Amino acid sequence: MCTGIRFTDPEGNLYFGRNLDWTVGYGQEVLVTQRGFTHPDFMEGKVPTRYAVIGMAIAPEGCPLYLDVMNEEGLAVAGLNFPGYAQYADAPEDGKVNMPAYAFPFYLASQCKTVDEAEEALKDIVILNQAPSDQYEVALLHWFIADKNRSIVVEYQADGMHVYHDELDVLANQPTFAYHRENVRSYLACTPDFPADAHWREATLSPYGSGAGMRGIPGDYYSPSRFVRAAYLNANYPAQEGEEANVSRLFHTLGGVAMALGAAKVSDGDYEYTLYTSCYSGRTRTYYYNTYENPAIRAYPLDSVPLDGGVVVKVPATL
């Protein structure tokens, strides 16, 4: 399972990040795909990347499979688990841009400059029910797509593609985004304000301290609960100035929905927990992340490697 958020600083710079929650990692690492790379799994390898991208990925046989990815222009895409709802096309459609789900984030980030461009491109895309190899299963996902101006959610189901405008700038897992958006209305009375004294008959009752206005915000790890909690924290976190403060804001906000080992099992009995948390700063074009085992935040500037060359490269950490 996963949770993602987006916000901008007072200068309008994008900050985008996600928790990746699961029972086991995949050997993922921070990779840059340079301009000019051709991905063999869409358009028969004939469409070179327009924009360099950075993100968390695995690269079986040298072909990047991004879990979350951001480009040099500030468009970000993350795939979040969506089992029970995601359903992809069984066969290509003539005249469409056909691609497997695992290539979809990379395609958008490498070809589109903004959410507006991505939304236009979605009109021609068909997502195929195809795994990257026999080693992996088809990932059943929906996608969180953002730039400095707005975010959208893309869900591909039995009746086709659905695109939602995400004013809350948050995404979790199943059920659908439409459900999550409606469910938030049940928590409209929650507030960060310090409660006033209450008068019950002759008694004046004072609060124990801060936080009483949050009562009702769910604290469990269930997907609808994480969505509500992330939306509340993202909406109420005070605006911050500067890179360090805004990166801190994102990690603290996602820390509010991070999963601790031992609290939640999946159906096969393994524990799910937050493998890593990532953050992309559009201000400095830097990808940050930490892991469950190592909470120290490491920084990977996109501009620390050449952006032209048509190959996939590893990025050195600066922290």
Rank of each mutant, 00 (worst) to 15 (best):
Q111D: 08
K265T: 13
A245W: 12
A235K: 10
G62F: 12
E202W: 04
L254P: 01
L65F: 11
M259S: 04
V53I: 15
Q174F: 10
A139N: 03
Q28K: 02
D268M: 04
N173F: 06
L108Q: 12
G309W: 12
V69Q: 02
I145T: 08
A178K: 15
M259A: 08
N173M: 10
M1Y: 04
P10H: 05
Y156F: 15
Q240N: 03
L302G: 03
Y88D: 05
E244A: 14
V154H: 12
V97Y: 02
C279T: 02
Y164D: 13
E44A: 13
D9H: 04
E29Y: 02
I125S: 04
I58V: 15
M56Y: 03
D147R: 02
A76P: 01
W22Q: 00
F104R: 06
E93C: 06
G79C: 02
I54F: 09
T253V: 15
G262V: 09
R18W: 02
F7V: 06
D268T: 10
A235I: 03
D159Q: 12
F251Y: 07
K96G: 01
D124W: 06
V184K: 06
A78V: 09
A91P: 00
H252N: 13
L233R: 12
A317S: 15
A258L: 04
D124V: 02
A158G: 02
P48C: 04
K96Y: 14
R50K: 15
Y292Q: 04
L14N: 09
K123G: 05
D197M: 10
E11H: 08
H252W: 09
Y85P: 00
G27W: 09
V53E: 01
V77K: 05
Y292V: 02
P238F: 13
A118C: 04
K148Q: 14
R226Q: 09
R226M: 13
F227L: 07
Y222E: 08
D303C: 03
N236F: 15
V257P: 00
E182W: 14
G213Q: 04
Y51W: 14
N246Q: 03
F42C: 03
G27E: 10
Y271G: 00
G209S: 11
Q130L: 10
A239F: 11
A299N: 10
D193Q: 14
G282K: 07
A235D: 09
W143G: 01
L67G: 09
A146Y: 11
P192L: 06
L67M: 14
N19H: 05
E182S: 13
A260G: 05
G256C: 07
